[in-house]
Structures are given as C-alpha cells and as structure tokens.
Design a protein around this nucleic acid. Sequence first.
DNA 1: AGCAATCCATACTCATCCGTATGGACAAGT
DNA 2: ACTTGTCCATACGGATGAGTATGGATTGCT
Lengths: 192, 192
Amino acid sequence: MDSSPKPERTRLTAEDWEVAALQLIADQGVGALAVEALARQLGVTKGSFYWHFRTREALLQAALERWEQYGENEVLGQIEQIADPRQRLPELFRRVAHELQPHRVYAALLKALDHPLVVPVMARVSQRRTEFLHTAYREAGLPPREALNRARLTYAAYVGFLQLNFTLGLPRINHEEFDGYVEHMIATLIPA
Amino acid sequence: MDSSPKPERTRLTAEDWEVAALQLIADQGVGALAVEALARQLGVTKGSFYWHFRTREALLQAALERWEQYGENEVLGQIEQIADPRQRLPELFRRVAHELQPHRVYAALLKALDHPLVVPVMARVSQRRTEFLHTAYREAGLPPREALNRARLTYAAYVGFLQLNFTLGLPRINHEEFDGYVEHMIATLIPA
DNA sequence: AGCAATCCATACTCATCCGTATGGACAAGT
DNA sequence: ACTTGTCCATACGGATGAGTATGGATTGCT
C-alpha cells in the first residue's frame, strides 16, 4: 500500500542501531547496553543485530566513534564564531549551563570509565576541550602557564558539575539560584 | 601449633568481608563486586559469604555504611583543628591533592551512580563536604551567598579532578606541574 | 516473473553469577 | 567425651545475556 511514508516497519541500518545505542546510553548508562533490550526497543530481535554488528562491543565502539565525531562541534563550533575573545568564555559558560541535553551522553560515559573502550574516547574529547579552553583563556589575556591551569580547573568544574547536579540529584537547585551559580563561576574563573 | 599468630586461616567476620569489598570497589569498581570473586580473594567459598550476609546487596550496603562512617573524618577532622580559618582552605587543598589514596573509593563510587544504593550515600557525603566548604569560605570572609557558590564550585572542581586525573589517565601531569596546578587553584578559588 | 542479496525471526548453546540446600569441620561450654 | 553453635565446602537450581545456526521474508535488479 504505502511505499515509505513512515519510518516505521522499515529495514534497519547500522546507523539506526548506533543512534539508538547512544540514546540508551544517555538514558540508562553504558551498562544497560544489551542487544536484546535494544532490539525490543527497535521492534526487532537479536537476529537483526548480529547481521549489522559482529559483537556487542563492536556496537559500542561504533556508537562512541559516532558520538566523538558528530557530537563534538555542537557547542564549540558556535562559540568559535564569536568575534570578541573576551565574550567567548562567558558565552560558553552560559550556553553549556543551559543546554544540558547534549551533555547527557558525556555524563553517562563519565560513569563508564571502567570500560576499556570509553577511556580513550573520553581522554581525547577531554583533551581537545581543555585545549580549547586553554587558547580561549590565552586570548582573554592570561599568560600561557596560568591559562593552562585555569583551563584544567574550569573543565574539572564542568565535569564535577555534571556528576553532582546531573547524575546525582543534589538538593535540586532551582533556576534563579542556578543562574546565580553560573554567574559566580564566570566571575571567579574568567579574568576581568 | 600456633594459636593465632597470623590472621591467615582464621575464621572470617562480617567486617572482613566489608573491608575486602571496599578494597575491591576501589580497585575495580562496584560492578566487579561479585561474591564468588571476593570469596576466592579471601580464600573461602560462597558458603562463607551467605552465612554472614543475606544477599550481595546487603554486603554493598554494609560496605557503603562503613565507608560513610569511618572513612569520613580522615581529612576533615584534621583540618578543623587548624586555628586560623584563613589557613584551613589552602591546607585542605594541599592535603587532598597529595593524599589521593583515601579518595579512590569515592572515585569508584562516582562511576557507580547508576546503582540505587550508592546514590543516597554519595548525596549525603557530597552534601556534608559542600557544607564544610561553605562555612570555611564564610570564615574566610566571603558573604554567605557567595560562599555557598564558591563551595559548590570548589567541590565540583574536586570531583572533576578525580574523574579526569584519577580514573581517566589524562596526560599524566608530572609532579612539579601538578603542584603548580594546585597553587593555581588556591590562588583563584580562595579569597586573599 | 525470477533471481540474488539483504535483512530479520526462531531456536538453540554456552558461560556467568546470584542464591539455596545440606552436610562437614572446628571451637567453646558442661 | 558430648553436645551445641559457629563458620565454611560442595553441589545444586535458576535467571540472565552473549553469540550461533538456520531458514524465512523482503527488497532490488534484470
């Protein structure tokens, strides 16, 4: 009857499995990445999975690569286009603070640093982001050495924030108080 | 021959299992906490375990309680005895930075925030430590609101640091550079 | 229409790990 | 010496989840 109006009941591709895997990772963590569960969620069975991937770890590998490639420039790309270097860091802070959605996978991966496959990925991503902060701080006027330490400190604060307020449900800070916290971060971490 | 010179080949107690569990958690994470593995490590079998504990989760629960109670005042207790409030925070920073051993369990638990049993424990511990920082910052001269935000920022930096440099093996910063980072933290986070 | 490649369902095997059942070893009390 | 309570070994049952084997369904190509 209908050729392909809805994406339902269509054959699946490897990409479909990868994005579904990332979704599941963001929701329930890497440990919950089971093939039968994913298959049920996609409306198929294991038979489908093992045609597209050789093993469970192969899917995780592919999903991580996809996340590392396509999910990277979501925030950083926009920031680089801000002309005034002194405006970049405050703007970066505010955007990261209010667009917590893209950070859910990162937060989930932070809890899976046991797994050998995620460690190198997180190492590369963290390294790149820290370097981004490093140059941003230099352009803001800090001497190189101090800029590097400040970048490390800032990124550590970011990571810790994710753990404490995202994963953990700490005292559920409300919106106004949260904005106050962000502005406090900007005031203490960014040179005037 | 010998009644009890070596602790080897002696009957085990519940405490033995709990400290062994914490050791295993620090080394390989909460996910690696399996009763048969622990039993092998202790030189016994499952039969011993299920005499002392009703279930695997009971052991985890007991181990977490033990850690929360006895492992808490290792650092904070000493700090409170420092007379000058202005000296407390720098000293706290330096000690925490150089005594990373007691923080291995905390780092491991940070990666197990999926588990329902560890979430409330980590919430309480993080809450208490943040409050400790809060009062420390007030005693250092910051107004209450700013002191609270600074405490949150500091603790987030601590948590993020554990994740990045402890769990993850980031560029393996050397000793001198690390000391430089700690001093930079002190300079930027602690009011003069 | 007919063929071949692609995609998936069904039905297994196998390993792991929690928990149980039961009997034996060892200590202490009487 | 005999019993009793404590601690542990051995041997099982059962659930879960990865991976395999194989045939059926669907699509694209000619």
